[in-house]
């Protein structure tokens, strides 16, 4: 297995004609990809069964070759690595091939670009094994080499999923590969959407994989902002705002004093009017008082 990939790798490096062939293939599938830009990154169109890929090297078009001539073949090289899978606790076997371009940057770093994935169809035995997994709600496991230049590198990167999460119409899978240069740190594997719990036993209608792959490298943390002048500026602004605050309307500033004051004033005014009314009515004031007395008297009893 390793030998095979290595061989391919070397052939890519030294046999330039093959190299261009492979790129022509690469270009074709690139075109196809454009309508499947679900994840905005280099993903494979899984529904195009991989026989197309294996069959296509024969066809070669001159235009892409010319385009590729500008790229330095020493810096960019094509590599392949395999995806292996296991059913439950079985041994790993080949499940598909990733191919990508390894781009070497001037500062020495290497990144993978133009990742493409071709998935092998399940053989009959594998289908049976997978059905067993579904029945037992067991794990479907995949693995990738941890280094793409010299696979398998230090260790395999393993991921697994409950098999019942995968079947939908076909078999939907979603692979996120976390890269650091030419190293694969981790791979996330699962269905592209939700996986309901409790997991129901569904057999896939079609035994073809619908794969989405994403390459992810680490994000750079933003540098901690250093602002001294801005702070000064903002503090000035704050002062300005404070001044604006000072120039609030009279009512807004002193409403808490004004309202009680108003109440008191109103109270005083009504009292004054009452007094004014009472004084002329002072001589006649006996009658209501008598009524009051009368009404109070029964209560006392």
């Amino acid at each position: 297995m390793t030998k095979f990939t290595l061989l391919l790798f070397f052939s890519c490096l030294y046999l330039s004609s093959f190299f261009f062939f492979s790129f022509s293939v690469a270009f074709q599938s690139d075109e196809l990809l454009l309508d499947d830009e679900e994840f905005g990154l280099e993903g494979a169109n899984p529904r195009s069964p991989e026989p197309v890929l294996t069959a296509s090297p024969v066809s070669s078009s001159p235009t892409p070759t010319i385009r590729k001539r500008y790229s330095d073949p020493d810096l960019d090289s094509k590599i392949q690595f395999t995806l292996e899978h296991a059913f439950g606790d079985s041994d790993f076997s080949s499940a598909g091939t990733f191919s990508a371009r390894l781009k070497t940057w001037s500062h020495g770093g290497q990144t993978l670009t133009k990742l493409r994935f071709s998935r092998n169809e399940f053989s009959d035995e594998e289908k049976d094994a997978f059905k067993n997994l579904l029945k037992e709600d067991d794990f479907y496991r995949i693995r990738l080499p941890s280094n793409v230049i010299s696979p398998p590198g230090r260790e395999y990167v393993i991921a697994s999923v409950r098999a019942r999460c995968l079947p939908r119409d076909g078999l939907d899978e979603h692979i996120v590969i976390h890269m650091d240069g030419a190293n694969i740190l981790a791979v996330s594997y699962g269905s592209p959407g939700a996986c309901q719990y409790p997991r129901q036993l569904n057999l896939p209608r079609k035994w073809s994989f619908n794969s989405h792959t994403i390459l992810k490298s680490s994000e750079q943390a933003p540098r901690t902002p250093i602002f001294t002048e801005e702070i000064l500026g903002s503090s000035e602004n704050v002062e300005g705002e404070a001044e604006v605050l000072v120039e609030k309307s009279f009512w807004a500033k002193y409403w808490m004093y004004l309202i009680p004051l108003g109440l008191i004033v109103m109270n005083a005014v009504t009292q004054a009017t009452n007094m004014a009314e009472e004084q002329p009515a002072g001589s006649q004031g006996q009658a209501p008082a008598a009524i009051q007395r009368g009404s109070a008297a029964p209560r006392r009893r």
């Binding site: 794990f139 260790e155 990167v157 393993i158 650091d180």
Partner: peptide
């Protein structure tokens, strides 16, 4: 137990 997943940090950089 069995191994379900691994995260392998490249020894030369992390």
């Amino acid at each position: 137990t069995r191994e379900l997943w691994t995260v392998v940090f490249p020894s030369e950089s992390e």
